[in-house]
Amino acid sequence: MYLVVSIAILITMALALVRALLGPSVYDRMLAVNMFGTKTVLLLSVIAFLYGRPDFLDLALAYALINFVGVLAVLEFFQSRSIRRAADRVDGG
């Protein structure tokens, strides 16, 4: 059963990757990457029990925290970039 669930999660991760590649906007890609990250946490938790190695749960928790901070950091970057571009357009136009 763990195997079935992990395959379902893997398929969803593949679908998220397809969405990340298709885009079209930066935010679609970020949405897909965020989804990929949370699914990674779930996959790690399932793997911990699939192979009977509870230490994977620590990795899952750490990954959950890193994913959250990472998404926020990338968003901050894109937002400041789009603000600068808007300012450039005003200056140039």
Binding site: A8, I9, I11, T12, L15, A16
Partner: peptide
């Protein structure tokens, strides 16, 4: 619960691909 969770995760992934805008 696990089977239902796997189903929901899959449907969500499908939705991310099928739905029309951000």
């Amino acid at each position: 619960l696990l089977a239902a969770g796997g189903a929901f995760v899959f449907v969500g992934g499908l939705g991310a691909l099928r739905l029309p805008d951000f």
